[in-house]
């Protein structure tokens, strides 16, 4: 990743297709049998089905862009977010992502139920690639925000689901990134905490040059986004901008 290159995302005809494995494809024995017998034995492992999740997408996202992804379930929104986070490498096409990426796709990522709150914060920070000094600074800030205080010394399996969510939220939103990826707007907890959480998330979004969010909520999209891509069956069917977005909320 070049440090002097400007932040941004350029996708050029990216294709993502998933192989769908059943038990037979998962088996080495069957695959070997299939290969050595010319397909007569273990025939079911022959025709492998694959699903095309994203079909030749091209787009360009610049700093300042707030991109909303809309579309039905299975239209490819989450897959696209995963491609942007670098987890899925496109089968064809090229994608270049410049900048630090933070994905808030799964809040409870890498949390360990047996470990204490503090240890979980550390664990997540390690995964995010922070240095021990940075981690130390994070510990206090996250502890304070989550209002979990002495509970942070206990294994998180003793937490209520609300407390768990608070911790996960506090940890996930303590990042600094150039590109923020979100699957639905995050909300947590009781009324008081929810307000605090919304403020924190808005601050995070405000200080991130690029936001890409997938959502089913048209009002939210109209409120936060500057551009909207509508996906259907892995294809961008339309792009909405400016005033068209207001029509979405109506």
């Amino acid at each position: 990743m070049g440090l002097n290159q400007p932040i941004g995302i350029v996708a050029d005809g990216i294709v993502v297709s998933f192989p769908i494995f059943n038990a037979a494809h998962r088996s080495l024995k069957r695959t070997v049998l299939h290969a050595t017998t010319g397909g007569r034995v273990a025939r079911e492992s022959g025709s492998r089905v694959s699903v095309c999740a994203l079909d030749r997408l091209s787009f360009h996202i610049r700093p300042g862009d707030r991109v909303g992804l809309i579309g039905h379930n299975g239209s490819g929104k989450t897959t696209l977010l995963r491609v942007l986070s670098g987890v899925y490498e496109p089968v064809y096409g090229r994608i270049s992502v410049q900048g630090r990426v933070a994905s808030l796709l799964d809040l409870s990522l890498g949390m360990d139920l047996e470990a204490t709150g503090y240890e979980n914060i550390r664990l997540r920070a390690i995964l995010a690639g922070l240095t021990p000094a940075e981690v130390q600074a994070k510990l206090e800030e996250i502890g304070e925000f989550s209002e979990l205080d002495e509970y942070l010394e206990m294994p998180i399996r003793t937490y209520s689901s609300g407390m768990m969510l608070r911790l996960a939220f506090a940890v996930s939103t303590s990042v600094n990134a150039d590109i923020l990826l979100m699957d639905e707007w995050l909300g947590v907890g009781d009324a008081d905490f929810s307000k605090k959480a919304t403020r924190r998330l808005e601050e995070l979004v405000d200080r991130s040059p690029i936001l890409v969010i997938a959502s089913h909520d048209p009002k939210l999209i109209a409120r936060t986004c500057t551009r909207v891509l509508r996906l259907e069956h892995g294809v961008i069917v339309e792009e909405l901008q400016g005033r068209q977005l207001q029509a979405l909320a109506a």
Partner: peptide, 9 residues
């Protein structure tokens, strides 16, 4: 798997 599918490492 949850980490592999979530963070690029």
């Amino acid at each position: 798997d949850t980490i592999v599918k979530q963070i690029k490492l």
